[in-house]
Amino acid sequence: MTFHSIIKPTAIAALLGSSMIAAPALAQDDYPSRSVEVVHQYGPGGGTDRFVRAVAQPFEEITGESMVSISVQGGGGIPAVVNFTQRPADGHSLMAISPAQIIAHVQGRIDMADFKPLARVQYDQALIWVPADSEFETIDQFVQHAKDNPGDLKIALSGAAGFDEITVGLFGLEADAEFVTVPFSSSEMVSNTLGGQVDAMFEEYGPARGLYDSGDMRPLVVFSEERLPVLEDVPTATEKGWDVTLGRWRAFAMQAEDSEENAEALYADIEEAVAAESYKKFEEQNALQYRSELLGPDEFQTFIEGEIETYTTVLRELGYIE
């Protein structure tokens, strides 16, 4: 039994795609004509799964067709991309993409050219959190300690060699301080930080909000262009002179071979769904409203190009790539 390497399915998908390209034009008025499946690499109940489900709810009311979240986990997201590219490019298979794909592209594991950018919906911002009984009250104290004691501070984050590690790595470079990053699953990350096994953790505001409300965790710095209105006392890294604004974004992509007409039609539906009240409520609950600006196919394409450039520089600085 042989299994396709990741290049081959792309070629197959390209073949399939070219034979299908004529089909969607016929069914223009009727698109989407069945449920739209959204492949992603994360587990059910995670941020991406909830993102797809939150868009799906108004999407169904608007189009009359359902949107289904398909979770293909593991393997650093490669199996999810392979699963996606092996599907027919008839506009009914999407992929929920994030910085993870950009990172995999920069590392040469996948090719962003396989995707047709459709809509960037969310743009999150992460923070460094310390437990309530931590000796550190400000980010300056935290960074100073790391400068005086290189490698003494341990920061928990979720996932190995992914977005979290790269952002914290860049923070270390910018602040000229050495941190040890310890990858965990997201729940173990929280329990190890609360239990004092590590000094701090890296997490977005939404998931950590409950711990902030109860006073169990304290944010030290936010990685964004501007301070969060809900956390006015928490400085941004930029203010401190560290240029770290990388954020996790969540977006939809179609297959590269999908037709422009379908892309336009689907973008209009998504635009409407994202403006729906139920989605706005979800956005607010998850504290995603601060810099989540909806980007359409063209702007999103430009954004992706910028991201590839940024991550190439960062990954090179951190020594992940040559």
């Binding site: 995670g46 109860s214 609950q285």
Partner: peptide, 20 residues
């Protein structure tokens, strides 16, 4: 893993997961 899915379900109802 199962309780992670439950948690996702709860947040839809506006419940903020946390010690409170």
């Amino acid at each position: 893993a199962t309780t992670a899915v439950m948690l996702g379900g709860l947040t839809v109802h506006g419940i903020i997961p946390g010690p409170l």
